[in-house]
């Protein structure tokens, strides 16, 4: 039988484990990102909210990704929610909305502090990718990272069609608010 050089093996394992540990220490996640959407017209204001968004942040590359299961958005009127999923977002076909990008400028993630940042990347909604730069605030405190961002999504840019019959009730540009508290991935 073949004998294994134990010392070398242990060394290797240690090196690799350190690698894995390092990577994980730089990764922050959240499973309960708050996402609010808001449509405002002179006729009707419509709001919907979800606490079920996910976010991943890799500090070494300043990479941020946020995704939301569209069906987790909850409306006041359930029939409206059904129409939102069925007629507008086609949630069975496109179950997720997603943003993936990189933060600018470079941030020192090890220090507590607050930053105004921009994330440049791709926003994917209704199966349509749009290059976007989304601004927001980052607060770092006691190893927790809080993100807060307000931005707009134009329905037309993502091929979400609003029929003329309900045109006065649904805004062409939907306001989005995202609040996330990320913790280190252990």
């Amino acid at each position: 039988m073949i004998s294994i050089n134990k010392n070398k093996f242990i060394l290797l394992v240690l090196v690799c484990l350190t690698c894995i540990y390092n990577v994980n220490a730089q990764t922050f996640i959240s499973r309960n990102v708050k996402i609010n959407i808001f449509s405002s017209t002179p006729v009707e204001d419509i709001k919907a909210a979800s606490n079920g968004g996910n976010a991943v942040l890799i500090t070494s590359t300043q990479e941020i990704a946020v995704q939301l299961a569209i069906k987790s958005l909850s409306f006041d009127k359930k029939l409206m929610q059904e129409h939102f999923n069925e007629n507008y977002m086609e949630s069975d076909k496109y179950p997720l909305a997603k943003f993936k990008g990189n933060f600018e400028p470079k941030i020192d993630w090890s220090k507590d502090g607050e930053y105004t940042v921009a994330a440049k990347g791709i926003l994917s909604v209704h199966g349509i990718d749009q290059p976007r730069t989304i601004t927001g605030k980052i607060a770092i405190k006691n190893g927790m990272i809080t993100l807060n961002s307000n931005f707009d999504v134009a329905c037309a840019a993502h091929k979400i069609k609003i029929p003329s019959l309900v045109f006065t009730k649904i805004a062409e540009v939907i306001k989005i608010n995202i609040q996330a508290t990320l913790t280190s991935l252990k």
Binding site: E63, Q67, K100, L185
Partner: peptide, 20 residues
Amino acid sequence: RASAQTTDSLLNSLDSSKKY
């Protein structure tokens, strides 16, 4: 693999859309 466990694979593992 560990270092390639980037945003995408992590997000996939968090994906909750199957619940709906």
